[in-house]
Design a protein around this nucleic acid. Sequence first.
DNA 1: CTGAAAGCGCTTACAG
DNA 2: CTGAAAGCGCTTACAG
Lengths: 333, 333
Amino acid sequence: MSTTIKEVANRARVSTATVSRVLNNSGPVDDDTRRLVREAARELRYVPNAIGRSLSTRKSDAIGLLLPDLYGEFFSEVIRGADQYAQQNKYHLLVSSSHNNRNEIEDALQMMRGRVDGLIVMSPHIEADTLDENLPRSMPVVLMNCFIENDSFDSLNIDNYSGAYQMVMHLVEHGHKRIAMIKGPERNYDARERWRGYNDAIREGHALAIPSLEMKGNFSEASGYDAVRTLLNQNTKPTAIFAANDSMAIGALSALRDSGIRVPEEIALAGFDDIPIAHYLTPSLTSVHIDISKLGGMAIEKLIHSIRLKNEHKKERVLLPTSVVIRESCGNH
Amino acid sequence: MSTTIKEVANRARVSTATVSRVLNNSGPVDDDTRRLVREAARELRYVPNAIGRSLSTRKSDAIGLLLPDLYGEFFSEVIRGADQYAQQNKYHLLVSSSHNNRNEIEDALQMMRGRVDGLIVMSPHIEADTLDENLPRSMPVVLMNCFIENDSFDSLNIDNYSGAYQMVMHLVEHGHKRIAMIKGPERNYDARERWRGYNDAIREGHALAIPSLEMKGNFSEASGYDAVRTLLNQNTKPTAIFAANDSMAIGALSALRDSGIRVPEEIALAGFDDIPIAHYLTPSLTSVHIDISKLGGMAIEKLIHSIRLKNEHKKERVLLPTSVVIRESCGNH
DNA sequence: CTGAAAGCGCTTACAG
DNA sequence: CTGAAAGCGCTTACAG
């Protein structure tokens, strides 16, 4: 259907090799020939077929992005940051998401083979074995927000622990002793790290460690809402609530309002992620800031580096820093 | 690097043709041979190279998704819906975003050639010519939220006009005469349609058409905030505000609070999109609901249909319905 | 400077 | 039921 290199060659009365050389600026070509080829290509609106080129050069100029179920703004920010950086470096993004079990992940990994020069994997539950068994050794991989002990992959993680630790320590330093936490999904690595930061800050800050103040949540607004309703029905009430993400903090805020409890006067509230609207809530939400699009960009940067070095470089782990942003909801604005 | 079909053939002592037949369940193969090949493939952990297959079958099992700059939850919802439906039908998604000018769009279109079996284009400013000139005639395309008069492409649009019309009519019916609108970007088609719906509802509902109540905005929280500040400095003040999306409504809400104006008692507020947190705001936000992930899914559905029919089907335009969701912010809860 | 030929990894008529 | 061969669209040593 599309014009092929052969048709261009015919029209320009040269060989396909010459057409290829002209269009790729590789090898020496006579100026007149070059002009002839360019003209023929333009007249026929020739665009090289990426697949054909890929097969012969053994590279695809594409990067695979393996994502879990993508709900919420987090992923679009990752993709945005990744695509931006990739595009600047002439790479394209092959995105595959919604992998809920091992089989689906394996399918996705296999379909990536041949199609991409490297792979960014962001699947909280993935195991090193799954990667080893389904990818050739030579395939560069960057793990994002995965919990894999294995040292044979580059990895990029958010410094969830410090963020949570600093946030809770801030609350402690402002006199809070009974600080509740609305946790994220138990199997989620980010969520566990945030919880660990909370615990350490409570302990080291000499606040009260009260098990009944640790509420389950699943990162959704609804679970934040429910957690607060439960919390308020208990005997021991918190003076501050730390939600493991902003969505749950928003649900919590809504529940506190419905219960007639003023924030921050009666209960202080803090979230995690610092999504754009945190600033515009009533009261504005204190949160832990992450530069998510930067996370996506850095992953691509590391991956491209790894591709250039044919995956024979030293693998490293990078921790993306987080920072506490104090607003009205925690009362120390 | 990876195992090839040839190595499998060697190990099983058959031809590559036979290996291909076994692995694709095409053509008749003796049971014993079949077993032999399967075993060899398993032992070598053979996974067919997608590029090689693509080149010879002339299909890629991939669908391209051309997106504009992706900020906010809207796009991740589109991608989620699209990827889900695509995956069910054994298609993969090649995503390319951040195209701000014609050249970048053309680059993206060209890189898609050969790599995808069909293309979903969601670029508000794209023109039919650009598509015609950079894609082969045979390439199935679905336009999403594009404003193209051309009848040679399938298109899928949100019924922005009705949504806005119904929302504003609801306000009119509840006694509002001076209804302000915070508009979206001027060049954005969705934004223009929402504005058109607003205007018609004002006129047909016999509310007051007051030019100074039409504020500019760009879909961001900040622009919603600024619009309200400006609005409140004018002589003619509205009794209700319709924001062209929820992000701006959130900014507006924040500005109203900062100005000490109660919502909905003093000013009613309504948004568009019905993002998940609309429900959890204080007050909860009245908005126009769109099923965004469904939009993505439907686009893929139409595209797959078009691929199967080799793009020789009758092109059609589909309008995805919207619905008004009344909550507290407009005072008629 | 240029072209014929081989090859990238697969599939598929064709012949047997 | 099976294999040899051609071909998908490109690139790249190699020879001239």
